[in-house]
Design a protein around this nucleic acid. Structure first.
Lengths: 112, 112
DNA sequence: TTACTATATTACTATATAGCTATAGAGTCA
DNA sequence: TGACTCTATAGCTATATAGTAATATAGTAA
């Protein structure tokens, strides 16, 4: 990490940017228990077909998901499971922070 | 990760978004070996003072860095070192992908 | 072939934000 | 006090992109 040039930094930033949208996180989350096609992901995520397709395209371009068309459907799956490690790390941090905030809130409520 | 509601997903997405800019990664990188003030970070990053200040403000708001003003200077430091674990994970993945791309490129060059 | 379904893409609008310049605050020292 | 330094912010422009509706493309089946 310490000796990354600007090009590599941009690369890393793009990777994080792919994870920086709730809809894409929802899709990745839905893929945790195996591949799904666009229709399924559209229904699960609650988005429109066009929007989900666009997000999937971006995720595939970033190498986060794999694309495989079978018949008239296209099945997407997680390309690199280590993305979930990232999410676990972040969720852990956020969980801690939310707990802290909840405590703070409670403290405020008690002393008000 | 599996049972995150929309609010939590937005929270996670915001966290990743904070890491989705090369300038902010550069700043975080510069803070790896200890706290630095805004002037130092401005010089290291090569950005303008105003821009660096804005990025620091965002990083602080996301809980990634701590702010402490001493005299006329403001010193920033990493709030949660686990952010580097994230970067290591991502860099590992990207490193592998870059190697793969390099191999691909070499193969193309050889067979052309 | 036609009709149908699944997915991708195009064109567009609205929003967010990175970066800039100029300026405002706040602390320090003469 | 005034002059100076350091940091934050306001106002602005340009760019990126999330979302939508409409359409195009591709595969399947009659």
């Amino acid at each position: 990490m310490s000796k990354l040039d600007d090009h590599a930094l941009q690369y890393v930033a793009n990777y994080f940017k792919a994870l920086a949208e709730p809809m894409r996180l929802k899709v990745l989350n839905a893929l945790q228990d195996g591949e799904k096609n666009v229709s399924q992901l559209t229904e699960i995520s609650g988005g429109t077909q066009a929007n989900v397709s666009k997000h999937l395209s971006l995720l595939a371009q970033c190498g986060l998901v794999k694309r495989e068309s079978r018949g008239t459907s296209v099945y997407y799956s997680i390309a690199d499971p280590s993305v979930y490690e990232l999410c676990e790390l972040v969720c852990g941090q956020i969980g801690n922070r939310m707990l802290a905030e909840a405590d703070l809130k409670k403290a405020f409520t008690l002393t008000r």
